[in-house]
Each structure stands twice: as structure tokens, then as C-alpha cells.
Computed example of a mutant assay.
Amino acid sequence: MLMICENDHVRNLANFDVLIAKIISYGNHYKPTKGSIQLAALSLVSQNAHASIANVTLLMEQYLHSVSIRELAFETLKQVNKNLFKILRSTTTISEMEMYMLVGSGKVLHSQFASQQRYDFLLDNFCSIIKLLKTNVFYMPKEEGLKIPNLEDFYSILYLKNTEVKRNCAFLSNACIIRNEVMYREANGLVALAATVKMYVKYHYGWESTQFKQIANLVIRKAKAPIKKV
């Protein structure tokens, strides 16, 4: 998923609201024939932008929370795998492939936006380990948490936590798409409408007019280029 600096959207909206406030101060002198830049239409765009940004903020918090919970769970998986490896080494000869499955699944990238594929790999690996243990007649752990049924329960927990992150990521992505439509859609997005309003005020009141000077320097533009996931 691509992450964009949320401050850009908030700043654009704040300046758009200042633009609307200036238009209100013009009173009945502001009478564009184009419906999309009339006061009522601009106010509706502002409301939609506020709602879409608030929704992205909420879903971002939920996504990051689920990522943190998942990371904690997979930290526990590293210790479980280490314990399994010790038992297998003492009870039977373990192949290089089996060793890789156990040791190789121990690393988790320490980043909030670590690759989703990494966690899918860890889950697949853990599932394979459990299948391997089921075929090992020498696997008889004393520790309750390392017994096959409990390992299967732990796998289910990890699976659900990983699925929750995927679901929250999808919700967040959809919310960002909606937000970007409201803010940056060609012709009718918030940024495009702000530019049209400025042009109208410029030609209606004049380049040197107080009305145009009040809004000319309001920065309302496209957001910075997306930042790719770590």
C-alpha cells in the first residue's frame, strides 16, 4: 500500500475553508454562473472532504493498531520456533530443509509497514512445521504450549490477526481512494475547484483587487508523490 503525507490533505482543506470564508465576505457580489463554484456547492465539497479525511484518519489508526498486535503475536512465534527446534534436535535427526523451515521463519521485519508477503510466508511456514511434527513419532513435548493441538490453536490466532491486518488495509485503501476523488478529481475535485474560484475572482474583481489578493496566495494543490511501503 502507498502512504501519502496526510498533512498535505489537511492543509489543502484548511486553505479551502479559508477560501470559502473569503467568498462569504464578498456577499452578493460573488455570483458565478458556474454551479460547481457557487457557495453552496463549495460548502458541500468541504463537508465531503472533512468526512473523507476523518474516515482515513480513523481507519489508519485501526490499521496501525492491528499491525502492532500482529507484530507482537509473531514475536511470540519466533520463540515457539526456537523451542521446537531444540526439541527436534534432541529427539531426531533434522534435515537442512527442516532446519531452514524452523530457523528461517524466525525473522520478522521491524517496521509498521513491513511487507505483507513476509507474514504470509511465516504463516505458511508454521503450518508446514506443524504438519512435519505430526509425522514425527519422536515428538513428545512436555511443555503444554508445544503440543500439537495448542500449536494448531496458536496458528489459528496468528491467521486471524494477519487477516485482520489485510482487512483493515483494504478498508484504508478504499477510504484513501474516496478521499483522493473528493480532493483531486479533475475538474470537480477540491483542488480544481479552488483554482477555478481564483480565476473567477481574478477576472471578476481584477488582478489588483483586494478580493483577489486575499486568496491568491492560498496554497491548494495536489498532494506530494506517494511514498512506497518499506
Rank of each mutant, 00 (worst) to 15 (best):
R185M: 12
Y159T: 12
M97L: 13
L146G: 01
Q38G: 08
N150C: 05
F138C: 11
E186W: 06
L19Y: 00
Q79C: 06
D17K: 15
L133S: 04
R11I: 14
T92A: 12
S90R: 09
E96N: 11
R89F: 11
L172D: 01
L44M: 09
I37N: 02
N15F: 11
M60H: 10
L72P: 00
K134S: 06
Q112P: 11
L64M: 13
L158D: 00
F121Q: 06
P32M: 07
L160N: 13
A54M: 07
Y200E: 00
T92C: 09
L88K: 12
Q47S: 12
L77C: 04
D124A: 14
Q62A: 13
L42S: 07
F212I: 04
A21W: 06
W207L: 15
F121S: 11
K224P: 06
K31W: 04
V45F: 00
F74N: 05
D120N: 13
F74P: 01
A73S: 13
S90I: 05
Q117G: 10
V137K: 13
T33S: 09
T210Q: 11
Y26Q: 02
P32S: 03
Y100I: 09
N55H: 06
L218T: 06
I94R: 01
S90Y: 03
A21G: 13
L160D: 12
I4C: 05
V197P: 00
D153S: 13
T92F: 03
S95L: 04
V80A: 02
L151D: 04
Q116A: 13
S115F: 07
I157M: 07
F74L: 09
I4G: 09
E152Q: 06
S95Y: 08
Q117C: 05
V197Y: 00
S156Q: 14
V108E: 07
Q62D: 10
K22E: 10
A175I: 01
F171W: 05
L123P: 05
S115T: 10
I227P: 00
Q211P: 02
T57S: 15
R70H: 08
L151S: 07
K222M: 10
N12S: 10
V10A: 04
A170N: 11
G106Y: 03
S115W: 02
P141Q: 03
G35E: 07
E61I: 13
A21L: 03
N136T: 09
A73N: 06
Y30K: 02
C169P: 01
T163Q: 12
